[in-house]
């Protein structure tokens, strides 16, 4: 898989104070740092090491990942809003890359 590509599934609107589910997925090999290559050398770790979701600047979840999370990390959790705004999603790669996605959400 070439570039890490995030995907997010979140509702377009939600009622104030009602929890709703958010599903996220990012294509990434999550090289665990525990495998060896053909020559017997350990393949260096290269993983998504952190994922965050914020709503209008307020944190929803902040997750630290290890190589024990499967390739193409799938993360599902619940958020709650009290106003319309933007959900922001950020994935941090060991190599320094940062992948972002955002979804606007209305009050139902």
């Amino acid at each position: 898989m070439a570039d890490a590509k995030p995907r997010v599934k979140a509702p377009a609107s939600a009622a104030a104070g009602e929890p709703f589910a958010i599903k996220t997925l990012i294509s990434h090999e999550m090289e665990s740092g525990q495998r060896k290559d053909g020559d017997g050398n350990l393949i260096p770790q290269k993983i998504i090491n952190r994922f965050t979701c914020d709503f209008n600047g307020t944190n929803v979840v902040d997750m630290t990942l290890s190589g024990g999370v499967s390739a193409n990390p799938y993360i599902e959790f619940d958020a709650m809003i009290d106003q319309a705004g933007e959900l922001k999603f950020t994935w941090y790669d060991d190599d320094g890359s940062v992948y972002e996605d955002a979804k606007t959400i209305d009050l139902a």
Partner: peptide, 15 residues
């Protein structure tokens, strides 16, 4: 996983 003020529950589903 740490849950912030905008979390709707303290639930996490992953693989």
């Amino acid at each position: 996983v740490a849950f912030g003020p905008a979390a709707g529950s303290q639930r996490l589903s992953t693989r």
